[in-house]
Design a protein around this nucleic acid. Structure first.
Length: 449
DNA sequence: TCTGGGGTCCTAGGACCC
DNA sequence: TCTGGGGTCCTAGGACCC
């Protein structure tokens, strides 16, 4: 805990859905659900309009469909568009401080003490207000909730207190007043299992938690977790904001529409997943020693099987052949709903590059350590619409799809109320494209049947 | 038609070494 | 000749996060 409120936490509001509503004006003000659209899909993000009907993250899409009214858009997601928008936001945060820790695509901590700022409560409040305006301006209207406090814990709690589009600063000294009335589930690290155990010993709020002794909590939650809970309940949190965190593992997994048992078919899936893992490893100049196969059975029980190699690898064929053997040893039981292939124990250089890349002298090795991967230049901040956001996956049925984009527009008509249609790429002068104010366009979606 | 995908961290037991 | 302790690596599983 610091003396000033100098840790900022930003959480973009219903991020995936907000990007969709930005890019497709027809979706604004309407319930939007982004996530898996197949039979076993789950909701990644529900817009606030969809949350009003009870749709929630991690809910099965089937359940969300039951709850939401007709006209709700169920979208598969466009991760390129989310990534580009996230990059714009992260670049704005890096203008505040060199110490920015992205937690995920839509969340980050900023250490304001590493920048040049007035750290008074009024000072950081004004800073946050300006930041929110700049984010909305640079992203075409995506909003975020900002929390500022004397630690990561307090910043995160604060950003959660007033959503969406919120701004909360917890003045130093008032941490326990804010923290103690809250349910323990608001603390990071208290999930369903820990919450249930705590409930059984009468702990519901953070104040209840603070009344427990350290040995009690260690018995209840284990050494590391118990100690962490004991400290968080007292607002004791010295975790630093860390800008660069290297990946510890790379994996790829897939859930099937129906359970699979055929070893040959599963083997082919392992090959393609291993190929993607290998591509990603080589793309980051990484290789790893431990290959892990993950299996989820028909009854949702999950098991992992792994093997550690004497030398790191980034070779997809080697990864695939180990994973295939682990699968053959584990068997397919009564059917598998998921398999995953991963590599961990990562190090910098690939097997084949060991000699070519190995620094010749200790001096060069030191130099080598400080070389950073070149970052892609951020898109210009004044551009509200990005190329590449022109692929529309919509399930609205007949009507009009609106959008804005550059160049050619690709439309695929597909969904429960429209028959699967071919992908149609429309040139700017295509008669199906009805130009509005350039560069806005609209496309008529044919009726089902 | 319950339950995605990509991660991180922790725990615990057995092997192995000194 | 019947009894150690500590440290590290590997494997498997589980909780949790977004």
């Amino acid at each position: 805990m610091r003396r000033e409120a100098s840790v900022l936490h930003l959480d973009l509001d219903a991020f995936f859905a907000a990007v969709e509503q930005r890019d497709k004006p027809s979706l604004r003000g309407r319930p939007v659900v982004v996530g898996g659209t197949g039979g076993r899909g789950v909701v990644a993000t529900a817009s606030y309009e969809a949350r009003a009907y009870g749709a929630r993250s991690a809910m099965s899409t089937v359940e969300a469909r039951r709850r939401c009214p007709p006209g709700t858009a169920f979208l598969g997601g466009r991760f390129g568009a989310y990534r580009r928008t996230s990059d714009v936001v992260m670049a704005l945060l890096r203008e505040l401080s060199p110490l920015v820790e992205p937690v995920s695509i839509d969340e980050a901590y900023v250490d304001l003490a590493a920048g040049d700022h007035d750290l008074s409560v009024d000072g950081v409040t004004a800073l946050a207000r300006t930041l929110k305006e700049r984010i909305a301006g640079a992203t075409g209207g995506v909003t975020g909730s900002v929390g500022i406090g004397s630690s990561k814990l307090m910043a995160k709690i604060a950003s959660d207190l007033d959503k969406p589009d919120g701004l909360v600063v917890v003045p130093p000294g008032s941490e326990l007043d804010v923290l103690h009335p809250l349910p323990v589930t608001r603390l990071g690290g208290v999930g369903p299992a820990t919450a249930e155990r705590l409930r059984q010993v009468g702990v519901r709020t953070v104040a209840d938690l603070a009344a427990k002794t350290l040995p009690d909590l260690v018995t209840l939650a284990g050494r590391a977790h118990g100690t962490g809970l004991y400290q968080l309940a007292r607002a004791e949190d010295d975790r630093p904001v860390v800008a660069e965190r290297g990946a510890k593992s790379v994996s790829q997994e897939s859930t099937f529409e129906r359970d699979l048992t055929d070893l040959a078919e599963l083997g082919r899936l392992i090959d393609s997943m291993a190929a993607r893992v290998g591509d990603r490893l080589r793309g980051s100049a990484l290789s790893g020693r431990t290959v892990t196969l993950k299996l989820r059975r028909y009854d949702f029980t999950t098991m992992t099987r792994s093997q550690t190699l004497p030398q790191p690898t980034d070779d997809a064929r080697q990864v695939a052949s180990i994973a295939r053997r682990l699968l053959a040893e584990a068997g397919t039981g009564g059917g598998l709903r998921l398999i995953g292939v991963g590599v961990s124990g990562l190090s910098q250089y690939a097997q084949g590059d060991l000699f070519a890349e190995e620094p010749a002298t200790a001096e060069e090795a030191v130099d080598d350590d400080v070389v950073e991967a070149p970052e892609a230049p951020p898109p210009p901040a004044d551009r509200r619409w990005w190329p590449g956001q022109d692929v529309v996956h919509d399930e609205l049925g007949a009507g009009w799809v609106w959008g804005r984009g550059l160049g050619r527009v690709t439309v695929r008509f597909e969904g429960p109320r429209t028959p699967p249609g071919p992908v149609r790429t429309l040139a700017a002068d295509d008669p199906a494209l009805h130009p509005g104010d350039p560069p806005e366009w609209r496309v008529e979606v044919p009726a089902a049947g």
